[in-house]
Structure formats: structure tokens, C-alpha cells
Design a protein around this nucleic acid. Structure first.
Lengths: 272, 272
DNA sequence: ACGGATTTGTGCGTATGTATA
DNA sequence: CTATACATACGCACAAATCCG
């Protein structure tokens, strides 16, 4: 052991080669067998190096002839300051979902699958909505997928769960409760507004964590990929927390973006 | 092999026990030797389970007789919508750093160490500032630490790097260039304003990723901890990107928060 | 449809190094 | 200094997934 561990030598070398583009995105790394020969280390040692590369998000692996493949960065972003806050006016008239607009603006085709269930509030959701853990809530889950160009397979990129207190979820307009519908619904002015609720403030929380098992499988995340979590809490004029939209996205594929005007100190005007 | 892998059995059991609080934060997991006995699996198998628990952010490990410890969540947040955007005006008069105010508001004691260097722009920073990769830039790095209560050791929680084009960094006020000073400087109205630059817009980007090696050591991150990255790009009235503040924080310790007022639709179809 | 070849996944046993109390 | 506990490393075997002929 000369200062560094053996697996670190392998790790560093491969890391450099990938960064330099010697192994390009979409390409395969040499199989373990070959690396064992090249470095003269045991398979176990080579494997810890490769495992760390996966954890670092540089490659993903699959048994069989997929081998280890260098990841292709996606880099979609999600404009949280425009979303629901006043932009995308045209889309609401057209009846297009704002997330879709946002994605299409970046040249992707988007799609989402909606499921609605009633379940008791997990710890974190209870905190967001300021209710007791275990309270019955309605969860409206959207699995969001993109592809480019049209025709290739869909890549799941986001898991967007809206949670509502039951009384909110069951509100009706024109005889139906839109929040309970298991399809991609849009309403002029937004669904929430259509059922007579006015949100006056959002509180957004963004954190970085490792995914739960169900998130890993739904988003098809390779082992070791972190996720970002963007929670938007909607608050009405009475200060009640009406809903929370918790979006979980693959850290290597998406990021969240805000645009903020800066309030100028003296006699300046805000650039709304 | 009963459907699941052996290490998964161990993983799931420990995961459950930790979630239920049977192993509380700060407590130690049983040593590997004991788990080998309890489950009747080999040490290697137990180890893969434990490694995954680390990756999942539930425990951290250290060689020696420390063993594996269940993580204690910190949960500090960082109010990005108030930061620099007009709140905390009093502090600027008082000359207190805004990050410090934010942290102290949550009952922590804060401290930061500043270092200034000139270096060529990394890929990502170049993209943020819209300059060529390799351009010489000034980096003002702040390692931010907290502790509670006063007296215990400092916990590094954030790495805040401000990057400036050289001409911006060298601007002077009262004969000194405040951005090049290696100490915790505050100016009424903010440092940037004090050197005659007006930022009119911020663009924030937040992403989740695995830390680079230097970030891991500076933030004392256990293996497998993801980081959040919050980048704030400041844009002046000519549309020039004046600086970027890239903050990297441990995903398990901090999160970013925004408060957004909702634009209300008065007359008809307008916003949501 | 099937079977073989390739490649990663899982698992065992063992030994030695290194950090910490 | 010693005991403990994790980190690294070797070798071996078989299972499971994938692709291709």
C-alpha cells in the first residue's frame, strides 16, 4: 500500500479517462476480466473501484452484455420560479400542463402517468402540511417521462406527488372532483383555483438525498444516484397549508432553477 | 437465494430497525462480527449490506473502534429567497453576514473561513458565467461551520465559492479591493454593491450530485453522502454575468428554502 | 425457441493493514 | 501496548441477465 489503496489507483485512472472523453458517454468500459489483467489486481479490488465509479454517477452497470456503460448527462431543468407563479399563461388557456411546457421549451417530448390513492401521511409530508403523522391524505402521483427524439424509449425523470387533505381533494367542480381523476387534467387558472382555493404563498424546500427503494425503481435509477427533492407547499389566505407538491428527480438528470428579480435598496422599482 | 439476495435481507432488517428507532441516531450498530453470527452469513455479505446502508445515508463508518453509527439529522435550512433579495436589511446596516443571520435565526452559532485565489474557470463555472472554460477568475471560498450549543466542535456544513471575473474582483472602494480580502467582510448594501455594481436579476440553479474528493474532505462527508449544489448567478443591468455563488452543502444536513408570493389573477384567465 | 458465450451479481473463506479507545 | 473494528486485498465458485447465432 503506497499511500493510496489499490482500488483508488484504478478509480482515478478510469475517472480521468472518462473525464477526458477517452471513454465517451454511451460507450462501454472494459469488462472486469480485462481490467484485472491490465492492472494486475484481483477482481474484488477492480470491483470496488468500479462500484465507487457507479456511486459517483459516472457509469452504470447491468449484468450480461450491457456491461458497464459511461453515463450520458441529460441536463433538463425545471423552472420553479415560473411554475405556477404567473408565467406560462398561454398554456393554461391551451390546456397544456406547465411541466410539459417547461420541458418542451427545452426540446424534449414529455408525458406523465397519473395515479391517485388515499394513504396516511408519512413523517415528512405531515411536517410540510402541518398535520399529525398518520392523517389520511390523498396522494396524486405523476410519473413524468421525457424522450428525444420522438420515437425512442421514454426516460422517467421525475416523480411528482401532490398531497392534499381529504376535504380539499374531494372538492368538486361541475360535478367531478378533478384532483381524484386519474388522468392528466388541466384547468384554466389551475386545478386548485378551479375548486375555489386561492394560494397566496408558496414555500419551497429543496434537498439532496439518497432515493428510497420505490423511487429507485420508478425512476430507474442506477445504484448510487442521489435524488433532488423539491417540495412546494401552497398556503391559502387563512394561512392553511392546502397541499404540498413533492417532486423527486434524478440528480444526474435534472436540476431546479429559479429566476429572482432583485429588490433595489433605495427608490428603485421592482422589475416584476 | 429466496427471491432476494442475502445482503438485501440484512439491509432491509437494519433499515427497518433504524427507521423504527431501535437503533437511534448517534447510537452504534452491532459490529460486523456480531451481525455475521446473528444472520449466519459471511462477513463479506454483511459488509455489502452495511455499505449500502452507508450509501443510503443511514449510517456512517470509521475505522477503529468507533464502529458504525446511525446518523443524526441536522436540518438547517437556508432561505434563498430572502438571501440578498431584500430581506435582512438591518443586518447589512449592522454589518452582519446574511448567512450568519440566517443560521442564527435557527438557533445555531455560525462561523466562516475565507480564502481567495485566482484560478482558471472549471467547466461548470464557465457555463454559469458564460465565459470560455479556462478563463482566469477569482475564487472567494468560504467554508461555513455551525455548532450548537456554543462550545462544542464546529461542524462544517457548507462550502460557498464565489467566482468573479478578474476586473470585477479587483474593483476598489476606499483604496482596498474587498473581494480580495481574506476575511469575513461585510458592507452596507452588500459587498458587490459597494464596488459599484448593481445586480438586477438572480438565476438560481439547484442540483443534487455526489461530492468531488476535495468537497468530501472539506465538508467531512462520510462516504455515500450526496451534496446539494445551489448556484446563484448575479446579472447586472447590461445583462452581464457578474458573479456566481456556488454553495455546496451536505444533503443530509441542510436544505434550501424559497418563499414565493403568488401573483393573483384579478380579472380573468391570467395566472395560477 | 433454444443454447452457448459473455459479463456482471452474489457469496464464501481467509489474511493483513490501520485507526482508535 | 493491546484489543477492537473497520478497510483492503486475494482466490474461488456459481447465479442471473443479456445478446447472438
Amino acid at each position: 500500500m503506497d499511500g493510496r489503496a489499490r482500488w483508488q489507483v484504478v478509480y482515478n485512472e478510469l475517472h480521468t479517462l472518462i473525464e477526458e472523453g477517452k471513454y465517451a458517454p454511451g460507450e462501454q468500459l472494459p469488462p472486469e476480466r480485462e481490467l484485472v489483467e491490465r492492472f494486475g489486481f484481483s477482481r474484488a479490488t477492480i470491483r470496488t473501484a468500479l462500484t465507487r465509479l457507479e456511486q459517483a454517477g459516472l457509469v452504470y452497470a447491468g449484468a450480461g452484455s450491457v456491461g458497464r456503460t459511461v453515463r450520458r448527462p441529460l441536463e433538463i431543468h425545471f423552472d420553479a420560479s415560473k411554475f405556477e407563479v404567473g408565467a406560462y399563461k398561454d398554456d393554461e388557456v391551451r390546456g397544456v400542463d406547465q411541466w410539459l411546457s417547461n420541458v418542451e421549451e427545452q426540446g424534449w417530448e414529455g408525458r406523465q402517468v397519473v395515479t391517485v390513492t388515499t394513504r396516511s401521511a408519512p413523517q415528512q409530508v405531515a411536517r410540510w402540511l402541518a398535520v399529525e403523522p398518520g392523517t389520511r391524505l390523498v396522494r396524486r402521483r405523476r410519473v413524468r417521462m421525457v424522450r428525444k427524439p420522438p420515437g425512442v424509449e421514454w426516460i422517467p425523470v421525475m416523480l411528482a406527488d401532490s398531497w392534499f387533505p381529504e376535504d380539499v381533494a374531494h372538492r368538486k367542480v361541475d360535478g367531478i372532483a378533478p384532483l381524484l381523476e386519474e388522468r392528466d387534467i388541466t384547468m384554466p387558472g389551475g386545478i386548485i383555483r378551479s375548486i375555489g382555493i386561492r394560494q397566496v404563498k408558496f414555500v419551497d424546500e429543496i434537498r439532496s438525498r439518497m432515493p428510497a427503494d420505490d423511487e429507485r425503481s420508478l425512476l430507474a435509477l442506477p445504484t448510487g444516484t442521489p435524488v433532488g427533492e423539491h417540495a412546494r407547499i401552497g398556503i391559502d389566505e387563512h394561512g392553511r397549508r392546502i397541499r404540498v407538491l413533492a417532486s423527486v428527480f434524478a440528480g444526474d438528470k435534472q436540476y431546479v432553477r429559479y429566476e429572482l428579480p432583485v429588490a433595489q435598496p433605495e427608490a428603485e422599482v421592482k422589475s416584476a
